[in-house]
Design a protein around this nucleic acid. Structure first.
Lengths: 200, 200, 200, 200
DNA sequence: GATGAATGAGGGTTCATTCAT
DNA sequence: AATGAATGAACCCTCATTCAT
């Protein structure tokens, strides 16, 4: 990748971050290209040099976030550790990533509202991929007798729903650090799956 | 309430339902007053006879939904039954109400994006009221030794987050009925709180 | 047609006339909706109440002009008079209508540049209809032995090309009135078809 | 002219040809500098090295086309042949040139829409020069008693209008070659002027 | 109570043009 | 000579809102 290309890639990333952050705050429709640009001391026109249109900007943001998430989960799954620990790590990292990016997943909470056609398919497919990794972990746990027998899809959705809600209620002013919160949340949610006594 | 007033109230309710349903599908900003009106074979102008502006329509929708939810929870709490059962009922009803209204809560997932000033305060206050009822149930359960000792607010948020996500992934085509799903979900989420063995 | 509808139809016509006149002067792309509207002391928004978009406005303008032209030609054809006289009248009226509307046809000189899909088909079909009327007159003239044997399509195109060019070079300041010009032009062009001596 | 200058001149010509061809298809305003450039595997920036602005590019295109046309007509006029034959050749060449360049004249059908100030004057003057050559041929023909007595300007305009329209309706798929068409068209149009019988 | 019509404030997008490298 | 990048002015279009009837 040439210097030029790297510069362009960097700029794209900057724009995406600006967009993700404002859209996360105000919502997609309430966010103007003007705002996204001016936050980076750019003009609207410049943003259009890097992205075809507003949809495209949103699409690429979502794609990047989802791909990073999938990368995260894959790294953990490849590790050599117990199933429970793995799932715990996955959930923890999910929360941490969410709180670090400060937004992102929620933007696409309802991809059908924001995308259509191929981009929608792509986004849904990435989400699906992510979900399937979690399903696998749960499934293996059940087969290994570590987890209770549950409806995998429902439980996975509940867990993801709970996780993603964090961004709505986690407040920086809280006493707990992001890591602590993430750990605690993962503990709580794993109880849905764990077998046997759930006492400390 | 005179006949005229009752008629007006009925119309208001109709409009709110139309609005809630379309906004739930498309999102607030993507929904036009035109669409809301024409779904009821009305004209935009008429809608403005009943609601000050779009914000007002949204606000009253949210208020109605939340007040109904609070009414639901109050009815259950007043019943004479065990704590666990009560909480289970609350969660079940929450899901059922969500799926019946098919939208509504999600609209206001981030009230800060949609409201400001007094209406925001009012909405937040109603949400708070609802949350506090759940907190109380959890707290009493902990005190009574039925539930584990948890961070009440976090767990409540997780549970509500999981519940509210249902609307995003529940599909009508599924084999399970709304009631079955609601029951199952409540079971699963209660595991976070339940003490002792969680086997069937 | 109710009063309302008639008012609306009148307004539409006004807008079309304003549009046709400015577009005729500046060209389609160089004309802004703002200009079209403000010439009628309206706002852009109002124009959009009557026409879906700029294309639509153009399309309806063209359609109206062509339909009027077809009506003109049909009236003449139904008259009881000689072929030569009929064709002469058609050409004369064509020029007069052109100069009266002061624009219009030229706008759509290249419909492919301005329309696509069904509207394009419709416009082309109307043009075709008009052309076929002229072809018929020429053909009958040839069969009746009044006109020379020519390639009908080519001659028709030449005649229409010559006629339509009038708008580009006819200047009001000329000594000749519109009627005189139209008559003269028709005389000249008929010479292409006339048999025998063309002397006065 | 140095090598460098010749190279530049060549490039200019290439750009002009690209421009003329696309503008002829889409129209001036609908054609972007980007399109003109990318058709030549150039970037917009480069085009601006050779032409001051879009207007300039258009202006020089028109000028080149008109100058070539004038050159064409002058060559023919200098030939030693009969008046009728000369005019016939002029018209034929006009059509052939039009169809060869596939566009060009029509672009500037209404120079007032595209130019203003000195460039407009220059273009109008070149057009005028071209027209005057034709006028002279007609006039001489009348004086020599070969052509009928007609209003020269009107007839010239009709002939040019008819000729220029060719580009709008000539289709490549036609059975006739460009040369045949050009010849036929010239024959037909000369009938407007010819004296005596016009039978074959 | 209802509606057709009008408005105007934006927002997304395009594109000719410029300029540092 | 060439280009990638940036700019900003315009333009089309949408839509919440208003109001006379």
């Amino acid at each position: 990748m040439s210097l030029r290309e790297r510069k362009a890639a960097k700029k794209k990333k900057e724009i995406i971050q600006s967009a993700v952050s404002i859209i996360g705050e105000r919502g997609f429709h309430a966010t103007t290209m003007e705002e996204i640009a001016s936050k980076l001391l750019m003009t609207k026109g410049s943003v259009y040099y890097y992205f075809k249109d507003k949809q495209d900007l949103l699409y690429q943001s979502q794609k990047m976030l989802l791909e990073q998430s999938i990368h995260n989960i894959e790294t953990i799954i490849e590790e050599k550790s117990e199933l429970q620990e793995k799932l715990h790590k996955v959930l923890t990292l999910h929360v941490e990533y969410l709180l670090k990016e400060r937004t992102g997943f929620e933007i696409g909470a309802k991809p059908e509202q924001l995308f259509s056609g191929d981009p929608l398919k792509e986004i849904l497919s990435l989400r699906d991929q992510y979900s399937r990794y979690i399903d696998q972990l749960i499934l293996k746990g059940i087969e290994a007798g570590v987890f209770q027998n549950v409806n995998v899809k429902i439980v996975r959705n509940l867990i993801l729903g709970a996780l993603n809600s964090v961004i709505e209620w986690y407040s920086f002013e809280g006493q707990k650090s992001k890591t602590e919160i993430a750990d605690l949340i993962s503990d709580y949610l794993l109880r849905i799956l764990k077998k046997g006594s759930s006492q400390p």
